[in-house]
Structures are given as C-alpha cells and as structure tokens.
C-alpha cells in the first residue's frame, strides 16, 4: 500500500509545472522516508532532483519501496483538474503498479475528483551526485534571480557568474554589445532585497541562460533561491519547499574552446 496526501496540493502542481519543460518522463521513487525523483534533460546537460519528506505530507504510508514511471505531460493533464486549494492524494495498492490513482478534494470536502494515470516502465539513468562543499553559495530572491536571467537572455545565450566576497556579478556578451549586473551582499529584513553570500573561494563560471530560465519556472515554490558553485563543477540551483523538501537543478558549465 502506498498513499501520500498533500494538504496543499498546489505545491505538487507547481513542482510539475516547474519541471515539465525540462524533462518528459520521470521515475518517482517512493520509500518509507518519502518521495524522490531524479531526471536529466534529453541533452544530459541539466538534471532535476526532487526530495519530498514523509513528514511534510498530511498522511503518508509506503509499506515497501516502489517506483512510479510517469509521463510528465500526462501527469500535468491530470493535475490541471485539481483546484489550487485542493488536497491531492496519490495512491496505489499494487506491488508493481500499472497505474497511479489521484484524489483531489476541495477545502469544504464537497467535491472529490478521482483519476487514474497509466504508468510507464522507464530505464532509469540515475547519476550519483557526490556531496559537495560548494566554494560559493548565494542566497537571494528567486524573483530577482529570475528577472536577471530573463533580462540578460535577450542579449546573450550564456551568462558568466563571478563571485567575490562582497558581490556576485552576472555578465553577458552578445552580438549587440555587452553588459553586467552586480548584486551586493545585503542583509535586508525584506526577502526581496536580501542577498546572502557565503564565499570561501571566488568562482567564475559560464552557463546557458536557456536552462537557467527553465529552472526559474520554480520561482513560485519559494521566495528565495540558492546558487551553489564550485570551480569546474556543475551549478546547483535549489528551491526549498517549506517543510516538505527541496527541488534542485544541476547545470553543467560551458567552457571556452
């Protein structure tokens, strides 16, 4: 028996919206400790990693580990039928399920929707991600980071992110010209202005803005985002989801030929 009930079903809707342009199908692994998922984009350049702890669910039961192979597009179609204020329950009784049941219930418990999504058998291409002490960690407003990436992507396909003890600089160079946006360490009380820099070693790395813009679809999951970088390593972009867990994106850097 597997059953997971989310009080705020809208969070699940937002997660699926955030990853649906990046990955087409995923294996969700359910265990006693919660749900986890790892998937790469078709070019194997970016990776999405989701972890949802059992404690964050209103009800959670998983008698034995199961793998749920899902088409994100089809999952998205079913989740469109859930209201933003609905609870969402995932359920299956089978040991090797061929489908996953969904229940959506509104706050008044006056409307209950039930769907079943056919599951797929997917080859897992799981990557082992080593625990990394990143040499530059930036925590800032997710909306602000999203705005910077969107603005710069009209000038260039790539952005160079350079950290120092005091600031982080986003630089672009394109056919029309060049530019940069520098964001300084700022211990404001307001989330939208706050920028926390933890710089053990400065880094300078270049990334494709197309992918960063896709990651930023997760902006509604968290008011802050953390950018974790080490020289010659993939960038890790993390959106923490309250008590529930986290959505992480990894992106391999670009290098000069």
């Amino acid at each position: 028996m597997f059953e997971a009930k989310l009080q705020q079903g809208v969070i699940f809707k937002k997660i699926v919206d955030a990853i649906k342009d990046l990955v087409k199908s995923v294996n969700i692994d359910a265990s006693t400790s919660g749900l986890s998922m790892q998937a790469m984009d078709s070019a194997h350049v970016a990776l999405v990693s989701l972890k949802l702890n059992e404690n964050g669910f209103k009800d959670y039961r998983c008698d034995r580990p199961i793998t749920l192979g899902l088409s994100i597009e089809n999952l998205s179609k079913i989740l469109k039928c859930a209201g933003n204020d609905d609870t969402i329950t995932l359920q299956t009784d089978e040991e090797e399920p061929s489908s996953l049941k969904f229940f959506f219930e509104n706050q008044q418990a006056s409307k209950i929707s039930e769907f079943s999504l056919n599951l797929m058998s997917l080859d897992s291409e799981s990557l082992g991600i080593p625990d990394t002490d990143y040499s530059s960690v930036i925590q800032m407003s997710s909306a602000e980071f999203s705005r910077i990436c969107k603005e710069l992507s009209s000038i260039s396909e790539t952005v160079e992110i350079e950290t120092s003890k005091e600031s982080v600089k986003f630089s672009v160079q394109g056919d029309i010209g060049a530019g940069s946006i520098t964001v300084k360490n700022n211990q404001s009380d307001k989330d939208v202005d706050r920028v926390d820099l933890q710089i053990d070693q400065p880094v300078k790395l270049t990334f494709a803005l197309r992918y960063l813009n896709m990651f930023n679809k997760a902006v509604s999951l968290s008011s802050t985002v953390s950018l974790n970088m080490s020289e010659e390593n993939p960038l890790m972009v993390e959106y923490k989801i309250d008590d529930l867990g986290s959505l992480r994106f990894y992106l391999a850097p670009k290098i000069s030929d």
């Binding site: 070019a43 350049v45 990776l47 990557l127 082992g128 993939p234 990894y250 391999a252 670009k254 290098i255």
Partner: peptide, 14 residues
C-alpha cells in the same frame, strides 16, 4: 567559442 559540457563528466552513472 564555448562548449557545453555534459553532466556525466562530473557525476557517475549508477
């Protein structure tokens, strides 16, 4: 000219 690296360069297949 910039080359896009792949993640498998950094992470191991499991």
């Amino acid at each position: 000219y910039e080359i896009q690296l792949m993640l498998s360069r950094y992470f191991n297949n499991q």
